[in-house]
Amino acid sequence: MRRHGVLIPNYVPGDSIVHRTPLWLKFLLVAACGLASFLVVDWMVSAAVLAVMCGLFLLTGAGVERLARSVWLVTPILAAIGAVQWWQLGGPTAARIVLNVLVCVVAAAVLTVTTPVQALLDGVVALSRPFKRLGADPERFALTIAIMLRSLPFIAGAFSDVRDSARARGLERNPRALVLPVFITTVAYARQTGDALAARGLGEPAD
């Protein structure tokens, strides 16, 4: 297994002002960016917001390289979307849509790069505590989220391995033979993870 283009970058220890900002405020920022991307109609506003987000990211001291890496993964999709939108709706609209996606990506990166996973988990646990009465189990919920985030690079890697092996063997005619290994690996990985959690006494329902 190898590390794969990380859409959501890992925590980078630091002492910047962004690191010291309370988690709820950073979370609000991410949520606001998600919402704003559908309210903003001027691409120049989007560009300005994106510049601010990139500024915040660099302020954390995580570096340009990490920023580029987290954006790099969405570029193929954005290029495709951008091209089609340009053709259908014109330049400014295409620019706005592409920039808004980038805002979301960078905002999420600012959050994860300055927050250790354990702190995120504590945040999720705190947020979901009100639902405890409805039978929710905040600790297990938070654990599930952590496992999901941890699995993303692995699964993305499995998908790209498929592309590589298809290329290596020459284009595979049978789509089943092409994609099945990804899903077998995925399920086996899920099982292994479940076993590892069980063996460590994590993720079992509380009595």
Partner: peptide, 16 residues
């Protein structure tokens, strides 16, 4: 009640 195995499957398929 979901077990650790279920948690693993849920999380990994969400990632999928």
């Amino acid at each position: 009640r979901w077990t650790s195995t279920d948690i693993g499957l849920i999380a990994v398929f969400a990632a999928l």
